[in-house]
Design a protein around this nucleic acid. Structure first.
Lengths: 296, 296
DNA sequence: TAAAAATACTCCATAGGTATTTTAT
DNA sequence: ATAAAATACCTATGGAGTATTTTTA
């Protein structure tokens, strides 16, 4: 069976045209090289070099094989280089999932910070809902995810990063817009607009407005915050919106007004999560350091 | 220092996704494989697989390295072949890929001729679409392929063998069936049935019917010629069919009629192709001699 | 808790070193 | 005759096998 050692030795022999010098270049003795070359010739069934006094000359077959060996060795060297890059933090591509209500706010700054701190880092981003992110990360299709934590899934390890306050988005002309601060208990089920079932924002909003009986909500379940914003702007109701999503998608619409809640202000915690015992935990913790953090 | 053994083991592990099965495939014990993979991970400085109960899954790095390893192993296999089959033509097993629209017509005769001329030759055949054949040949999983040439891929060397004329397949009762010869410019986009996008027959048919705007085709894209034949037989449209595929799959259906095109009759060139610099070029040229040839 | 991978340890094959012989011109 | 490669022989490394323990969802 062919070995890389044999190809490395042939490569050196081809370069030096002399067993003794090639052996020296390889840091082995001449007999060691001779034996390996003879093994290679036996394995291939053909002489690779003409032995001449004064040195060696490649045969036609030997020349062909030496050039192929050089290509193989180059490919192997590339493999080794991939490995070396891995010693560094974020040395290999990291596939990161982010939920849609966080992504547009988080990513511009995060990607810049990653680029500054780890110039060689390569990060791929996928944006979808928490449930999908969890599945894909569990399957190994993603390396880590940014979402509202805790996920409540024992397979995952989490690092909380920062709070994202909930605001009340109301039509500019409504009675809600006249208050300086909002109160969850004053929200009526009939006017509350939420995302469709299974979406984490829906569950978070309901846990904040505990007084609301979910069965009394409008059956309407939007699939995107943008849809809800337009409904609110059109006076169809009100909604709870995370501050960072509001900054990106709502603040500029004059038909909408954002009202902060009175203390204690409701919020969700945003954090980084990954499969427990993932070999890249060091990468993930380094990445978590680059997330926006609460000033506490 | 990296060894070929480690790459061979990683390759098997990637293919089997399970230490035990991969070890069995390699003919070694599971601990032997475990140790080598661990050595490789140590040498590269990164985990290559996630160890899970039920098997293993390649990490991102592992996947990258496994694919490079496969390329290295293919190159090494070529080096070994230079030795083995040297001297005898077709002295070692040849893995040949053939596209489906050629295979049933070509293979019976070809395999007989190979057996007569080179009684010791062993040929394995794989039948699939051009794109897959190209990938597998580039990867070293196949030695050569028979398809419509030119492939337009600089990595391949080609020998054209024979022309395969295109015929028009029409429903027996249609107006087309009354003509003694067909004219590509008289084919309407609305009635032309083609295979799905990416299939070479589709592209060939479109290049023959240049007047047709592809966007006006029915969005329908069948996955097999058989499906299209049945649609034509049912009066749903017409199609272009290579003569050899027609001989095998259409000629016997009374609901179909085949009409030859007027001169210059459109055709595709069928040929043999292999990876440039393959050590078995002599074998391939010998094989090409056994393909049906145009009488010119 | 059960399947799967890692570890421990023993043995043998193989690579490499030193000393010496053979080869080719 | 002489440089150079091959061979002989010994040692050390490392790969593989068996038995067992550890790991993980």
């Amino acid at each position: 069976m062919l070995t890389l050692r044999q190809l490395r030795y042939l490569d050196a022999l081809a370069a030096n045209a002399h067993f003794g010098r090639a052996a020296a270049a390889l840091g082995v003795t001449q007999p060691a090289l001779s034996v390996q070359i003879r093994e290679l010739e036996k394995a291939l069934g053909a002489p690779l070099v003409h032995r001449l006094p004064g040195g060696v000359r490649l045969t036609a077959v030997g020349s062909e094989i030496a050039s192929r060996a050089a290509a193989v060795l180059a490919a192997v060297r590339e493999i080794e280089e991939i490995g070396h890059a891995r010693g560094r933090i974020l040395g290999s591509r990291l596939r990161l999932g982010v939920i849609p209500s966080i992504a547009p706010y988080l990513l511009p700054g995060l990607l810049v910070r990653i680029g500054e701190r780890y110039p060689d880092a390569a990060v791929t981003v996928r944006e979808t809902v928490t449930r999908t992110l969890i599945e894909e990360t569990a399957q190994g299709e993603l390396d880590a995810l940014v979402a509202s934590v805790p996920l409540g899934d024992a397979r995952f390890e989490e690092v909380p990063a920062f709070k994202d306050a909930f605001l009340l988005a109301v039509p500019a002309g409504s009675v809600h817009a006249t208050h300086s601060s909002a109160d969850p208990s004053q929200i009526a089920a009939e006017e509350l607009l939420l995302l469709e079932d299974g979406h984490c924002l829906r569950d978070q909003a309901l846990s904040i407005c505990r007084a609301i009986d979910p069965s009394r909500l409008r059956s309407f379940g939007a699939t995107s915050l943008t849809t809800i914003f337009h409904l609110v702007a059109a006076g169809q109701g009100i909604t709870l919106v995370p501050e960072m999503a509001a900054d990106v998608g709502v603040a500029s619409d004059p038909r909408l007004k954002l009202v902060r809640f009175a203390d204690p202000e409701p919020y969700r915690m945003v954090g980084l999560a990954w499969r427990r015992n993932s070999p890249r935990e060091r990468d993930f913790r380094a990445l978590a350091e680059l997330l926006p953090a609460d000033r506490q």
